[in-house]
């Protein structure tokens, strides 16, 4: 893989120089405009930010983005499912708690929520907060605040989707389960959720992709994920197009991977004769 990358990068550099592939770039410091060629070898040069070369610097950023996304997703899925189910239960108390949760977390901007988790809550919590601010290393402070924020934010969205999914199955399924003597808890676990989740795979996938994009917001509290690193690489190497092109490409590739996995999951869990599943 390595040698192939080297060869193709080298070939492209030579070709681009030979074709006078040039564009006007303005330097964001006080220097005057430069004429530069697309220089993809910049990815192999060492990054001033770390011991790695620039490409690896970005890839590690991608890794941090993905890590935050995954942990937040676990939190979001569990809490979101619980709240979504709560909103479909009979009675008025539980559904309204669910509704309040959703309204609260959907009507405050993500950035504000993040700042609340990172600044306000550690300040306000008596013992745990002080420990958090003093003993936990900054990167993990950012990570924990990010996970809590993104987890609960995304949970509100998942709750709405789960609620819609269960609703689409209709009262008929619930009635059929209850009529057999199953308790409500059993009806949800054995009948409703297995089908609802299958129906929801596409919407949940797009929610996960949103979550990946939202991890970029964590850069405002210093979490060094991909978007931030793209910008930082652009600044340090002056290779702005290459840096952002790489960042965009990496996000796009991640998108495609997630969607392919989701399609695989859909096929794996499909029911014969149902929703176009296996026969």
């Amino acid at each position: 893989m390595g040698p192939l990358l080297h060869i193709s990068v080298g070939a492209f550099t030579v070709w681009s120089q030979a074709n006078h592939f040039s564009l006007l770039t303005s330097h964001f410091s006080s220097k005057t405009a430069l004429i530069a060629a697309f220089d993809f070898s910049v990815f192999l040069r060492p990054s001033p930010e770390s011991a790695l070369n620039n490409l690896s610097y970005l890839l590690v950023g991608l890794g941090w983005s993905l890590l935050l996304a995954l942990t937040s997703w676990v939190v979001a899925f569990v809490i979101g499912s619980a709240i979504g189910v709560m909103r479909t239960l009979p009675g008025r108390f539980l559904p309204s708690i669910g509704a309040c949760y959703v309204e609260l977390f959907r009507n405050i901007p993500l950035l504000v929520q993040l700042f609340i988790w990172f600044f306000v809550i550690p300040d306000m919590t008596p013992i745990l907060g002080d420990w958090f601010k003093r003993q936990v290393p900054p990167i993990w402070q950012e990570f924990i605040a990010g996970t809590a924020c993104l987890g609960l934010f995304t949970a509100a969205r998942i709750a709405e989707q789960v609620r819609a999914g269960i609703g689409s199955l209709g009262a008929g399924q619930i009635g059929a389960g209850l009529a057999l003597g199953l308790k409500r808890r059993q009806v949800y676990l054995l009948v409703l959720l297995p089908v609802a989740y299958r129906i929801l795979i596409p919407t949940l996938t797009s929610e996960f992709l949103n979550l990946i994009k939202n991890t970029a917001v964590a850069s405002t509290i210093g979490y060094v994920e991909l978007a931030q690193r793209s910008a930082s690489m652009a600044e340090t190497t002056s290779r702005v197009y290459e840096a952002f092109a790489a960042g965009t490409l990496l996000y796009a590739v991640l998108n495609l991977l997630v969607m392919a996995l989701a399609r695989g999951l859909e096929r794996f869990t499909s029911l014969p004769g149902f929703l176009g599943g296996r026969r």
Partner: peptide
């Protein structure tokens, strides 16, 4: 008490 519904309501999964 057994019940049979208009729309069958078998569990599709």
């Amino acid at each position: 008490v057994g019940m049979v519904f208009q729309h069958f309501e078998l569990f599709p999964h």
